[in-house]
Amino acid sequence: LQLFIKTLTGKTSTVEMEPSDTIENLKAKIQDKEGIPPDQQRLIFAGKQLEDGRTLSDYNIQKESTLHLVL
């Protein structure tokens, strides 16, 4: 599924993920695209901070969801 990652600067990146992927996997993919180390990334979806060990489906993240990346 395609996700949009929006940064505080207003920049939006697109990443392709599976519902079974963990937040950790997602942060690794963001690191590949943006060069931001996972330990500096905080991802927010629906007002919640996402935890590394959980999966996208745990948070009911659907295709074309927008996640907010806070550093």
Rank of each mutant, 00 (worst) to 15 (best):
F45I: 04
L1W: 10
D52T: 06
P37R: 08
L71T: 09
P38I: 15
H68F: 15
R42A: 07
L43P: 00
L71K: 07
L26Y: 01
F4P: 02
T9K: 11
L50D: 00
Q2C: 08
I36G: 03
E64V: 06
E16V: 13
K48I: 14
A28I: 13
E64T: 08
L3Q: 02
L3D: 01
Q49M: 13
E24A: 15
K27M: 05
T66W: 08
V15Q: 03
R54Y: 13
K48T: 12
N25I: 12
Q49V: 15
I36Q: 03
T55A: 07
R54K: 13
N25K: 15
L69G: 00
L43E: 00
T55G: 03
T9Y: 13
D58F: 15
S57E: 11
E18A: 12
L50W: 01
K6E: 07
D39K: 11
K11S: 09
A28Y: 12
T66A: 05
I23W: 01
Q40D: 07
D52G: 06
L43F: 07
E18I: 09
D52W: 03
M17H: 04
G53P: 06
Q40K: 12
Q40V: 10
S65V: 07
A28T: 09
A46P: 00
L8G: 10
L71C: 06
D32T: 11
R54H: 12
E51S: 07
K33S: 12
T55H: 06
T12V: 14
T12F: 11
Q31C: 10
F4S: 06
D39A: 12
I30M: 04
A28E: 09
I61H: 02
D21T: 05
Q41D: 01
L69A: 02
E64P: 05
L8M: 13
D21W: 06
L69I: 06
G47N: 06
P38M: 15
K63A: 15
Q41I: 13
D21P: 00
S65M: 09
E64A: 12
K29L: 10
Q41V: 10
E18P: 04
L26I: 07
K48N: 09
F45S: 02
D39T: 10
L26H: 00
Q40G: 05
A28M: 13
D52P: 07
E24C: 06
E18V: 10
S20A: 08
T66G: 03
T9S: 14
L56T: 01
Q40P: 02
K48Q: 14
G10H: 05
L67D: 00
G10D: 04
Q62G: 13
S57Q: 13
K48A: 09
L1P: 03
F45R: 02
Q49F: 14
P38Q: 13
L56F: 07
S20W: 15
G47A: 03
D32Y: 10
S65P: 03
I30N: 01
E51P: 02
K63N: 15
K33R: 11
D21G: 09
P37Y: 05
I44T: 08
D52M: 05
K29G: 02
Q31H: 14
D32W: 11
G35F: 03
T22L: 10
L43C: 01
G53C: 06
V15F: 14
I61P: 02
D39I: 10
R54D: 04
E24Y: 14
I61R: 01
I36L: 06
T55M: 11
T14F: 11
K33C: 06
Q2A: 07
H68N: 08
P38V: 15
N60D: 08
T66Q: 06
A28L: 14
L71P: 08
I23F: 02
E51G: 04
E16K: 09
T12M: 13
Q62A: 10
D39H: 13
M17Q: 03
S13A: 11
A28G: 08
M17W: 08
I44Y: 15
T14S: 10
D58E: 11
L3T: 02
E51Y: 07
L69P: 00
T55K: 12
E24F: 14
S65N: 08
I5D: 01
D52Y: 05
N60I: 05
L67M: 05
E16H: 13
D52A: 07
S57Y: 08
G53W: 13
G53I: 06
D58L: 03
Y59M: 03
I44G: 03
K11C: 09
A46T: 05
E18D: 12
Q62D: 08
Q49T: 14
L43K: 01
I30Q: 00
D52S: 07
K48C: 06
G47S: 04
E34F: 15
A28H: 12
L43T: 00
I5L: 05
D32Q: 14
I23A: 02
I30S: 00
L1S: 04
Y59T: 01
T9C: 14
P19A: 11
T7R: 13
G10W: 04
S13D: 05
T14A: 09
H68C: 11
L69K: 00
T12P: 04
R54Q: 08
E34D: 09
R42W: 10
R42G: 05
K6T: 11
E64D: 14
L3C: 02
E24I: 11
L67Q: 01
V15W: 08
G53V: 06
Q49N: 10
K6D: 04
A28Q: 13
Y59D: 00
I23N: 00
I61F: 06
Q31E: 10
T9F: 13
F4I: 11
V70H: 09
Q41Y: 15
L67S: 01
S57D: 08
K11I: 11
D39F: 11
Y59W: 02
E64C: 12
G53N: 12
I44V: 09
L43V: 06
T9I: 07
F45P: 00
M17D: 00
T7C: 13
L1D: 03
K48R: 12
V70G: 05
T9E: 12
E34L: 15
F45W: 09
E34H: 14
L8E: 13
I61D: 02
T55V: 07
Q40F: 10
I61Y: 02
G53Q: 10
E16A: 09
S20I: 05
F4Y: 13
S65W: 04
I36W: 14
N60T: 05
